[in-house]
Computed example of a mutant assay.
Amino acid sequence: MSVFASPRFLPNVMWADAASCAATGALQVAFTDALARLTGLPAPLLMGTGVFLLVYAAMAAFMASRATPPRMLIGLVVVGNFGWAVACISLLVSGIFPVTAVGVAWVLAQAVCVIVLAELQWTGLRRSRGGARPAASLTPAGRW
């Protein structure tokens, strides 16, 4: 059995998403001022996104803990993760803030992480999709 076909694949990816967001959010909330100095990002941005990440981590953990993952919510998570990556890149490209090399690494690490998670979540959603009709239900002419 492929790891992607495992019924635990999608919940495990959601647990990974929850853990990464909890860790990043906790760092940004606990060390806002230090991170602001190191990254060149404004403290209010770090605090705001840190709090958001902690709330999101709790919601992702809730989704991961369900016996049947909520497909529609996880679909929204996929879109949100790709959106987060676009926002990260936009922030760097815009030049609005005097982002340091550490700041570029911090933001790019988040972008790469959410792109990987979004792709794994999308793969998990596609692989766990139910309702495919078996070949035996084809008509004699080979059509549905």
Rank of each mutant, 00 (worst) to 15 (best):
F4M: 13
A5G: 03
A5R: 15
A5C: 03
P7V: 08
P7K: 11
P7C: 05
R8K: 11
F9R: 02
F9N: 02
F9D: 07
N12K: 03
N12T: 10
V13L: 00
V13P: 01
W15R: 15
A16R: 05
A18K: 02
A18M: 04
S20Q: 02
S20P: 00
C21I: 00
A22H: 01
T24Q: 02
V29D: 04
V29W: 03
A30R: 08
A30P: 02
F31D: 06
F31E: 09
F31Q: 14
F31H: 14
T32V: 13
T32Y: 09
D33K: 11
D33P: 00
D33G: 13
A34T: 15
L35K: 06
L38G: 04
T39W: 04
L41I: 09
L41W: 06
A43C: 05
P44T: 11
P44C: 05
L46V: 04
M47T: 12
M47Y: 12
G48A: 13
G50Y: 07
L53R: 08
L53I: 00
L54D: 04
A58T: 07
M59Y: 14
M59A: 15
A61W: 13
M63W: 14
A64Y: 05
A67V: 10
A67S: 14
A67C: 02
T68W: 03
P69N: 05
P69C: 09
P70E: 08
R71Y: 07
M72R: 15
M72K: 10
I74E: 00
G75A: 04
L76P: 00
V77R: 12
V79I: 15
V79W: 09
N81W: 00
G83Q: 06
W84G: 07
A85W: 02
A85I: 09
A87I: 04
I89K: 05
L92Q: 01
S94G: 15
G95Y: 10
I96H: 07
I96M: 05
F97R: 06
V99C: 04
V99H: 06
V102A: 15
G103M: 03
A105I: 11
W106A: 14
L108W: 09
A111K: 01
V112C: 11
V114H: 02
V116A: 12
L117F: 05
A118S: 14
A118I: 00
A118Y: 03
E119I: 12
L120H: 01
Q121P: 01
Q121W: 03
W122Y: 13
G124T: 06
L125M: 05
L125A: 08
L125S: 02
R126K: 14
R126V: 10
R127A: 12
R127Q: 11
R127F: 10
R127G: 00
R127W: 09
R129C: 08
G131Y: 04
A132P: 01
P134H: 10
P134T: 09
P134Y: 03
A136D: 11
L138G: 10
P140L: 11
A141I: 05
A141C: 08
G142C: 10
R143N: 10
